[in-house]
Design a binder for these strands. Structure first.
Lengths: 230, 230
DNA sequence: TCAAAAGTGTTGAATGTACACCCATGC
DNA sequence: GCATGGGTGTACATTCAACACTTTTGA
């Protein structure tokens, strides 16, 4: 038998991050989820797109590692960061054995973002990705599912919004993420009833219609466990 | 400065499992959550109780590792197994750097279970644990929260039940896990409406009252991602 | 005055909760 | 019969979805 002859090697540990941001879709113009990918510059999967990440440093928290990756590839600080899952199948990488702890993050793409862009980093529409290296396609699918599920029962939308925002903007985030249209009246009531918003008392000026009230999220940041709390 | 002088060492990767089973509470006699712990036989935390687990073998899936731990400590096969979280704070272990990927499992304690018990393994009431080694107390707290949350919206209760069961038994599982009493009539309707049960057509005999119908779960096993699917 | 979005009201369906009540069995 | 849990019915409250309608602004 020549099966199972592979040499036992050490397991290496990496941290990758699925970074979500909202931008207009290139063809429809509608707000859509985007995420940055990194082009691999060595084998395996050389030339293919992959999630940003890297090996876990010995003096780094898991979440800290995710944050560093984020800083390095986009120049941004996450508004929300949560552990997604640890992937450790034996066949994830053709030669070596890698366990990846994957995080997902929400960011607001400022001008800064586009600046750091370029090199081997490129943003893609999250639902229209090219084939990715390793099992990264499955990972993104899972991250998308988690985001879409979670936005319906927790106030993560703030991850895509500035500190103050109108209910229309909040609704637009939900609509973009969920790819549906939501009834403004009902959405408003639910949002207010959820007790996660406070009216700032100020109103957005400069609109060509009735000035909408500005809101702020109450809780600081509802994040998961230990390193990021849950 | 003598701070930060610690030598950079390699990060090691372990897999631990929080194993839940239902047994009567020793004082009240009510069904309660129990879990097995292992007494540490070396430093750090020598003599203290800890979650069962071990280093990840290079030729082992994450879930497979959890399953092996389970087999080793309890002699049981899990009815349900799901990844909980990856813990990786820098200060989890006093000397070395360990990242633990933690799973949680549901088992039925047969006679077998008690046989393998003993040695350095002992079962405890999940809500009345002694102080544990490392950050294992927090981990258990989190696992308990996840179990209690998840049983309300997914049919995990089957993890504690034999293939065929009455609605009273199913309800007893929910009551034990959630530590509440549930209205039999309403519980029945919700359970049936959830579309996860089928009546076997048979009835439990030998009761001193009206024989209850026996049910079976429909879906095979709704588990999470890759290795265990989600 | 008009268009457009903000914001309020109303109605009917669906769901959840409390609890009364009948059913089938062993003793 | 009677006690006991199995199983059904019902009425009320709460929540959710659809949509009509009023309000406030800029142009």
């Amino acid at each position: 038998m020549t099966i199972g002859m592979q040499v036992d090697q050490r397991v290496s540990l990496a941290v990758s991050t699925v970074i979500f941001a909202l931008r207009p879709h290139p063809s429809t113009g509608l707000m859509t989820l985007w995420l940055p990918l990194v082009r691999r510059i060595r084998e395996p999967y050389e030339g293919q797109w992959a999630l940003p990440g890297g090996p876990l440093e010995a003096n780094e928290d898991l979440a800290a590692s995710a944050r560093h990756t984020l800083e390095r590839t986009t120049g941004l600080t996450p508004n929300y960061l949560e552990q997604l899952y640890a992937f450790g199948s034996l066949d994830r990488s053709p030669d070596d054995r890698v366990v990846s702890i994957v995080y997902w993050a929400l960011v607001q793409p400022d001008e800064v973002a586009r600046a750091v862009d370029g090199e081997n980093v490129e943003w893609f529409v999250a639902d229209e990705l090219p084939p990715l290296a390793f099992d990264h396609s499955e990972i993104v699918t899972y991250a998308l599912a988690r985001l879409r599920a979670k936005i319906t029962y927790t106030p993560i939308a703030y991850g895509f919004l500035p500190p103050e925002f109108t209910l229309a903007e909040l609704r637009a985030v939900h609509e973009a993420v969920l790819r549906t249209s939501l009834d403004p009246a009902n959405f408003r009531r639910q949002a207010l009833a959820s007790d996660t918003l406070v009216a700032t008392g100020t109103y957005l000026q400069g609109t060509s219609f009735r000035p909408p009230a500005l809101f702020r999220f109450t809780a600081g940041a509802p994040t998961p466990l230990p390193e990021e709390r849950r």
